[in-house]
């Protein structure tokens, strides 16, 4: 009798673990939230603003390139994040994950949360293809303002140096990208 009881308990726990394992992180997002579109999608200004907001609020835990440090600081370049819709990400930013150390960003205005997501999408954290990256050698030889805008969106540090000469901004961005590529 006792053995049967333990077997039943074991079965129920195993089933729970299996269910938890196959359930996506985003399954708990309400369908209405999941379907929401980013009102700032495709807006270069929103991407620039998002880059600055990312630097202020997210970079501390996820690093400038959103790769984390593989230890304490988690990467955002994960299949789980890539598979999320804009609505999922906005919902998650608002909720946070207090148990695991992610604070709730409900204190940020909603528009700013969408701007962060616009930036993340531009930076390639999405299921969609990332923005085209200009050729490094060509850019170094002849930095152009349009290409610099792409770099600007990809590196928050460029936003910080926006007031400097655009060529200087580009060089700095390219230096960082080249260093990352070689690594």
């Amino acid at each position: 009798m006792v053995n049967r009881f333990f077997l039943a308990v074991f079965f129920v726990f195993s089933l729970s673990f299996i269910c938890a394992a196959v359930t996506s992180h985003w399954d708990s997002v309400p369908s209405r939230e999941h379907a929401r579109q980013n009102p700032f999608q495709g807006s270069p200004e929103a991407v620039s603003a998002g880059a600055l907001l990312y630097r202020d609020h997210c970079q501390q835990c996820h690093e400038a390139d959103a790769q984390g440090d593989g230890r304490k600081k988690p990467s955002l370049h994960t299949p789980s994040v890539r598979s999320a819709s804009d609505g999922d990400l906005e919902w998650f930013l608002r909720q946070g994950d207090l148990r695991h150390g992610m604070p709730s960003w409900s204190s940020l205005p909603q528009a700013q949360r969408w701007q962060i997501i616009a930036y993340l999408r531009q930076a390639g954290i999405s299921g969609r293809p990332a923005a085209p990256i200009p050729d490094f050698v060509a850019l170094r030889a002849n930095p152009r303002r349009a290409d610099c805008a792409v770099s600007f969106a990809l590196r928050p540090i460029c936003a910080y140096h926006r007031s400097m000469q655009m060529t200087s901004c580009c060089r700095r961005c390219l230096f960082h990208r080249a260093r990352r590529s070689s690594a």
């Binding site: 929103a46 991407v47 998002g50 600055l52």
Partner: peptide
Amino acid sequence: PLRSAATGRV
């Protein structure tokens, strides 16, 4: 806040 959306400049 006086403005919701952030401007894209420092």
